[in-house]
Design a protein around this nucleic acid. Structure first.
Length: 729
DNA sequence: TTAGGGTTAG
């Protein structure tokens, strides 16, 4: 929430204080005139009677050191007041253990310890060098006394005079999330001409939202704090984390311009990561080169940011080249770098490469951690290999690693994508039992799974439940819901959902528009789809290659091939490279029109552009050439697709077999027919008739009968089933 | 003080 408010508010870049001239003269005047010495405190005077009592208590405590404190103090307990505690403490300053025990005894009698006594005890601990105990006492003091900071300052001069007490108090305030108390202490100290160390000031900087961080960064030097490289790095990181990478870069340049603070590997790595996160790879690489010129050696953080960016852009091979580069430069990749690479290959669906990297990683003596396992589970789930994903999940548990929300969500999403909603919800319950709280990503995966099963109402209900739990729908959730509504034919409701989404303060993106455009294209409403394209362009939303593919499909289906070709040109103009799907749509339609000349032209253009044909491309080309009776070309593409490990679809088998029979190439046709049967695909009725006649003619009665049975089962039974369903029986 | 994992469209 704080971060969000920082992102929304404009962040002003601070003016860097010049350490050579830290203060302007007016500031020096105002600081020096307001400085005063620490207060002269001394405990209030006791009466003679009280003094005698305190002496007796002190003597008993010291002389009977080995006895339980409770029994030593029991004769004094009824008279012992809070003032006595304060008067006894000076006598025990050389015995911290006794001080702590006395406080514990006093508290155990249901008496609140006075603020002054708590502060004094902390001072005694610092003065005796026991910083751990001091920290504990300071935590307690902050937690139970309203004016504890003031009291520590007030009693300082008399009891301690070791300024490290203020650093410890500052730490205690930060670690118990009392930022205001830390500020309060800072102001008090400034008024006495003192400041806490730069280390604790850095800890404060790192805990502040960006705008407050910047204001502290500018204000503290006025009081005498001298920032170091770590401070500047925290600022660079803060600015990068809210996307203000340009301003972060200015800070780095200011560091370079100064004599006292120079940017180090962390400064550069942080800024490089900032540029990588906003996708500015060129700037990131420039900085990477600058580092070497300045004699700074990139570390595994630096390399990992570059590798992450390349993987995100799908350039996994290039990313692995960077990994090899780092090894050659003597930087050993760690678990994080391997996990980044593994995740890159998982996203690419390249599971053999994932296996190879896991092997390499283990060979280097690195142990996969929970994040590595989650990436592996995600990769397997994405590829639909749920049995393997579950096996890795079990291995993770066996190794004593704790799955978290991300691990469970990866598995849940995998089951949802396979339509196994029962398994997905079982895991959802399991994570609840483990004490893990499903978040909006988990619910989006479940909701998307339900939508894809046609259960949009159930998805809606689930999301209502999610909202009742205090979670809010995000962009992905809305987009998934819009998709579910479109696919179930409720385009109007999908449009209304987009309106709701905007009302909830979430702006639609390229996904939202593309989904709706696809629905309109499939409904043949090209004008509406085009209108949406104009709307998204007006809003400055960059269409993706999928947006164009959706339109391309629409144009092709509406037989508007010229518009399709124009769209292809426009894509290139807009620097959005057409992919295999784009070309496949156009080729498919030209094939339907039996225009194999245009199809071949497009196929060649695609290859020239370096776009690789996929399984769909080959199936389209084979069917097209068969329809056009170009069996030579059809067989050539069949050979090519086999070489590349792709498979024919049933319609392509049918087309090829019929074409070959037509050309009397019966041996080849028979081979394909057998292959098709083995693959469990159904051949056309005509094809069965051809091979039944052929085998009968050749006297192969056994095979003839087998084919007759198969044909009856596949064709007659099926047509009867269709008949009954047609009549609603 | 800096880096890695999960949700949406063809």
């Amino acid at each position: 929430m704080l971060l969000r408010s920082a992102m929304e508010r404009p962040v002003r870049c601070p003016r860097i204080p010049d350490p050579r001239r830290p203060f302007s003269s007016s500031v020096i005047d105002s600081v020096t005139t307001s400085i005063r010495p620490f207060p002269d405190y001394s405990p209030k005077k006791s009466s003679i009677r009280d003094s005698e009592f305190v002496d007796r208590v002190t003597t008993a405590l010291k002389q009977r050191r080995s006895e339980p404190l409770r029994s030593v103090l029991s004769p004094f307990a009824s008279r012992f007041r809070s003032d006595h505690l304060i008067w006894v403490l000076p006598h025990l300053r050389s015995d911290l253990a006794l001080v702590v025990a006395l406080l514990r005894w006093y508290r155990s009698r249901k008496n609140p310890i006075p603020t002054e006594a708590q502060a004094i005890a902390a001072h005694i601990a610092v003065a005796s060098g026991h910083h751990g105990t001091a920290r504990h006492l300071l935590y307690e003091g902050l937690a139970s006394h309203k004016h504890f900071v003031e009291q520590v300052v007030y009693t300082y001069k008399y009891w301690c005079s070791d300024p490290s007490v203020f650093d410890l108090l500052f730490w205690a305030a930060l670690e118990s999330d009392r930022i205001d108390e830390a500020h309060n202490l800072f102001s008090h100290l400034v008024s006495y001409g003192n400041v806490v160390s730069v280390d604790v000031c850095n800890a404060l900087l790192a805990r502040l939202p960006v705008d407050e961080m910047l204001s502290v960064f500018v204000q503290f030097p006025v009081s005498g704090v001298r920032w170091n490289a770590k401070s500047y790095n925290i600022i660079i990181h803060g600015l990068c984390s809210v996307g203000k990478v340009g301003e972060a870069h200015r800070i780095l340049l200011e560091m370079e311009a100064q004599a006292s603070v120079s940017p180090d590997v962390v400064s550069y790595s942080t800024l490089i990561d900032g540029y990588c996160c906003v996708g500015e790879s060129r700037k990131a690489m420039e900085l990477f080169d600058d580092m070497s010129t300045k004699g700074l050696k990139p570390n595994s953080f630096t390399y990992n940011s570059i590798i992450t960016l390349l993987c995100k852009n799908g350039k996994v091979v290039e990313a692995e080249r960077v990994l090899l580069g780092m090894v050659n430069h003597g930087v050993a990749p760690d678990t994080v770098v391997y996990t980044t690479m593994i995740n890159g290959f998982c996203k690419n669906g390249n599971l053999p490469a994932v296996d190879r990297l896991v092997g390499e990683m283990k060979k280097s003596g690195l142990v996969p951690d929970a994040v590595t396992y989650t990436a592996l589970i995600y990769g397997l789930s994405r590829s639909g290999k749920m049995a393997e994903a579950d096996q890795v999940f079990q291995e993770m548990l066996h190794k004593g690693l704790n799955p978290d929300e991300v691990t469970y969500t990866s598995l849940i999403d995998g089951y949802c994508k396979k339509g196994k909603m029962k398994d997905a919800f079982h895991l959802h319950n399991e994570m609840l039992q483990m004490g893990l709280i499903p978040n909006v990503v988990t619910y989006t995966a479940l909701s998307d799974g339900l939508c894809k099963q046609g259960q949009v109402e159930a998805a809606n209900e689930l999301l209502h439940e999610m909202c009742a739990m205090g979670l809010e729908l995000n962009l992905c959730t809305y987009n998934s819901l819009i998709n579910g509504l479109c696919k179930s034919g409720n385009i109007d409701q999908a449009v209304r959902t987009m309106v709701d989404m905007e009302a909830a303060g979430i702006s639609p993106d390229a996904y939202s528009y593309t989904t709706l455009m696809d629905a309109y294209c499939k409904a043949g409403e090209m004008d509406r789809a085009h209108g949406l394209l104009r709307e998204m362009l007006d809003k400055g939303i960059q269409p993706s290659v999928v947006t164009f593919n959706v339109l391309m499909n629409g144009f092709c289906a509406a037989r508007m091939l010229e518009d399709g070709k124009r769209l292809l040109g426009w894509m290139v103009e807009k620097n959005i490279l057409p992919n295999t799907t784009t070309y496949n749509s156009l080729m498919k339609q030209y094939c339907i029109d039996k225009n194999m000349k245009a199809t071949t032209e497009i196929y060649r253009g695609m290859c020239t552009q370096g776009v690789m044909p996929d399984e769909n491309t080959y199936n389209i080309l084979i069917r097209g050439h068969c329809r056009a009776r170009n069996m030579k070309e059809a067989c050539y593409f069949h050979g090519e697709m086999v070489k590349r490990g792709f498979h024919l679809r049933d319609s392509s088998y049918n087309a090829l077999i019929k074409g070959l029979v037509r050309k009397k190439r019966l041996l080849e046709a028979r081979k394909l027919f057998e292959e098709m049967r083995v693959a469990g695909l159904v051949a056309d009725r005509d094809i069965y008739n051809i091979f039944i006649d052929l085998n009968y003619g050749q006297g192969n009665m056994e095979l003839t009968l087998e084919l007759c049975d198969e044909a009856v089962e596949k064709w007659l039974v099926e047509s009867k089933t269709n008949e009954t369903s047609k009549h609603g029986l």
